[in-house]
């Protein structure tokens, strides 16, 4: 039957074609092809490793950030608390100082007012004594009052 006819020539050609193909592929195609594949596989593996390392580092940075934020929060609270405390102290000191100053100013003002009042009273007494002396001279119509008597009048007015 022609279907199963033995054909040594065709069998030999099969081996020749396959052998030649195997030789060419083995010698010229496979080395660069496998090199390309390995290079790409290595690159991909490296990229995957890098991506994993980056992800890991990102996680660490995120953790670090959260820690820093937490610490900063705590520190900020502490600073705020301390500042409030300091402000309270400063405020108390300032209030005390202001009160003292106001008290001093008040005392000074009182003293000054008292001194001025005293001076005014003295001037008024002297003027009154002079007025009394002048009036007496005018009434009598002669200048009889000496400086000594004037002084005496002044002291009298003072005692009133």
């Amino acid at each position: 039957m022609e279907l199963f006819k033995l054909d040594p020539g065709l069998a030999a050609w099969t081996w020749i074609a396959f052998g030649a193909l195997l030789f060419i592929l083995w010698k010229f195609v496979f080395p660069p092809l496998m090199k390309n594949i390995k290079t790409r596989e290595r690159t991909i593996a490296k990229s995957v490793d890098n991506a994993a390392a980056i992800e890991r580092r990102l996680g660490e940075i995120e953790e670090e950030r959260e820690k820093i934020l937490k610490e900063a929060g705590v520190k900020a609270d502490e600073i705020l608390h301390q500042t409030r405390k300091d402000a309270e102290v400063l405020k108390a000191k300032l209030v005390e100082k202001a009160e003292k100053e106001a008290e001093n100013i008040l005392v000074l003002a009182r003293n000054k007012a008292a001194a001025e009042r005293e001076a005014l009273l003295q001037t008024l007494q002297e003027d009154l004594a002079d007025f009394v002396c002048d009036a007496s001279e005018k009434v009598i119509g002669a200048s009889f009052i000496s400086e000594k008597e004037r002084q005496w009048t002044r002291e009298l007015v003072k005692e009133l």
Partner: peptide, 19 residues
């Protein structure tokens, strides 16, 4: 035989183009 040779040539050509 022509088919076998043609197949081998096609593979060689295509593979060399690939590398």
């Amino acid at each position: 035989v022509l088919m076998l040779i043609l197949a081998a040539l096609l593979i060689v050509g295509f593979s060399l183009l690939a590398v």
